[in-house]
Amino acid sequence: MKLKLKFSAVTIAFLTMSFNAQSEIQEIHLTIKDHLFFPETLIVPINQKIKLIIDNQDKTPEEFDSFDLNREKVIFGYSRAVIYIGPLKKGQYTFFGEYAPQTAQGKIIARKKESQNAP
């Protein structure tokens, strides 16, 4: 009985990791220019996976970093990067550029689906 319970616990732990099938994922674009993020605020739907496409239009590299989202990615100069985020709960998630944290700052607001991206 104990062995069964242990086996079930291990199985549950590993079932939490599932290899993802490719499906329709909403894409959101973010641009880095002059060490700033455009748009500064992104509004995304809750409980949905998002494909964040980041374009670095600066000559210098930048690192997209977010402790709230647990994401970290170097984007080389004049280059592009793709990061998957979510599904997110309702709330606000900050991100910043690790190489220019004073200027490159932004946030993602997870809301219900009706909302649109801020200008």
């Binding site: 939490t16 990791m17 599932s18 290899f19 993802n20 994922i25 996976k49 494909k51 647990n70 994401r71 970290e72 990615k73 793709v82 990061i83 998957y84 709960k89």
Partner: peptide, 17 residues
């Protein structure tokens, strides 16, 4: 742990809350 987070970042696996 960062390896797991990177796997989530590229949509290879999903992690629980």
């Amino acid at each position: 742990i960062p390896a797991l987070n990177l796997a989530v970042q590229v949509d290879l696996i999903s992690l629980n809350p």
